[in-house]
Design a protein around this nucleic acid. Structure first.
Length: 433
RNA sequence: GCCGGGGUAGCUCAGCGGUUAGAGCGCCGGGCUGUUAACCCGGUGGUCGGGGGUUCGAAUCCUCCCCCCGGCGCCA
């Protein structure tokens, strides 16, 4: 059994000069100068310099000289305050245990994207990736906290499904005994079922899209936070989105300031997101803004990536686009009773060019209308019988949305590419490691 | 799927028709009483993505294929 040792951050923050400590971690960098060896040791919490000097060291010197980057070690020694040490404190080693030496580490700095992706399993030890892993943790916890405090039920919808939610072309097909099944691309339809027993529900699940996308904002596998609630209209649901996003930003700024700093995130650009409400523009108004900026889109067409980016430059905080033409949106979105050509759908776009983070809507709750939309979409109502049943047995007005965790992390952390918001990114050409 | 860029040493790249393909970093050896991407000296390092072709001669030109990166559509 291993006795627990203090985190390196604890040693830096709470241990005084002369304290005897034992730490465990990995060698981040090693300098052999004169008769001494300086090693920076890393654990999940931080880095500290360890100084090895022949005098006072009970371990044979050869073990120290063999130390290399990423060797795993346990060091016993005493704390010394010294301004020459990074962080202002170091450990003068009295004993060294090496759990595993490391051959020359394949990452030295300056490698290109492809190389780093191929050694992703090792690159995750880098400071940037550690910071991103922690930021993602905090974002997820913040989202869960908000929902828990607001009284929502966490549920576990299936990942293996028998039918599609959106278009069929983007599904991953898997063998399911002697039939075909699909990896879920959204839990929405199942969450709609679960509001009947539980009123307000959410789930955090992986979603899968077999799109052949090659962009900085798409993954084949991503983490999807979906919420669904009875007796919530589109405005209520946008309020939920504002609550979740502003809380996630607040928590991250509060708890991950070191990590944001390491990533050079300009936190002042996030501050406006702390204060909902977020601006709301309709699709029609978005088209007007775009027209002013020189983009001409016919009513009824969707806007593309360039247009979306241009739109995000108009706002300094996240904002909603609402009331899209029915024909460009999914069949389950409720049509606006005042304007049947549009639906009660909304997107939440992050500023600074980051774009869509959330897509949601009020759902069609009328049996006949939904049935017809299924038909119009060219779908087989038989596949959606259970879904249509929800509009038969005590139908209720309800709304929901899906939030892309990596999209949110990407914007909050201010990173260029979505692949770094997930430890093991997957897209068409990438399944290793 | 479409458009663009790329594949030369372990890594990042230069070389773009002419001897035996180079540099920096790394790595190995040596030196240095405090390093912060250490420094100094010496050494090591290559089927030039793969096949076919043109040529006296190909990393270099042509052709097919493979792989990767960026962008578009789609979306979270």
């Amino acid at each position: 059994m291993f006795e627990r040792t203090p985190d390196i951050s604890d040693v830096l923050e709470r241990f005084d000069e002369g304290s005897e400590v034992v730490i465990r971690g990995w060698i981040h960098r090693v300098f052999k100068v004169g008769g001494k060896v300086f090693a920076w040791v890393r654990d999940h919490s931080g880095f500290i310099q360890v100084v090895f000097d022949k005098s006072g060291l009970s371990t044979e010197w050869e073990s120290v000289e063999r130390l290399s980057r990423e060797s795993s070690v346990e060091v016993k020694g005493s704390v010394r305050v010294d301004e020459r040490a990074p962080g202002g404190k170091e450990i003068i080693a009295t004993e060294l245990v090496v759990y595993g030496y490391s051959p020359p580490f394949p990452i030295k700095g300056g490698e290109d994207v492809e190389y780093l992706l191929n050694v992703r399993h090792l690159w995750l030890r880098s400071r940037q990736m550690i910071a991103l892993l922690k930021i993602k943790h905090t974002v997820i916890q913040a989202l869960k906290d908000w929902l828990l405090k607001d009284g929502w039920w966490e549920t576990t919808p299936p990942i293996l499904t028998g039918s599609a939610v959106e278009g069929g072309a983007t599904l991953f097909e898997v063998k399911y005994f002697d039939k075909a099944a699909y990896l879920s691309q959204s839990a929405q339809l199942y969450l709609e079922v679960l509001i009947f027993p539980l009123n307000r529900v959410w789930a955090l699940t992986p979603s899968f899209r077999a799109e052949k996308s090659r962009t900085r904002r798409h993954l084949s596998e991503y983490w999807h936070l979906e919420v669904e609630a009875a007796w919530y209209d589109i405005d209520d649901m946008m309020g939920v989105a504002e609550g979740l996003v502003s809380h996630a930003v607040a928590k991250t700024i509060e708890e991950r300031s070191n990590e944001l700093k390491l990533l050079n995130r300009d936190v002042t650009k996030l501050e406006s997101a702390l204060h909902p409400p977020y601006p709301r523009v309709t699709y029609d108004e978005a088209l007007e803004i775009l027209a002013r900026k020189g983009f001409s889109i016919k009513w009824g067409e969707d806007y593309g990536a360039d247009e979306e980016k241009a739109l995000t430059e108009e706002f300094d905080k996240p904002f909603f686009v609402t009331h899209f033409p029915k024909r460009i949106k999914a069949f389950y979105m409720k049509e606006d009773p005042k304007r049947p050509e549009v639906v009660l759908g909304f997107d939440l776009l992050a500023p600074e060019g980051y774009g869509e983070v959330i897509g949601g809507s009020q759902r069609e709750d009328d049996y006949e209308k939904l049935y017809n939309r299924v038909l119009m979409e060219g779908l087989d109502p038989k596949d959606y019988e259970w879904y249509l049943d929800l509009r038969k047995y005590g139908s209720v007005p309800h709304s929901g949305f899906g939030l892309g965790i990596e999209r949110l992390v990407m914007w909050i952390a201010g990173i260029e590419h979505i692949r770094d918001a997930v430890p093991f990114p997957r897209w068409r050409e990438r399944i290793y490691p």
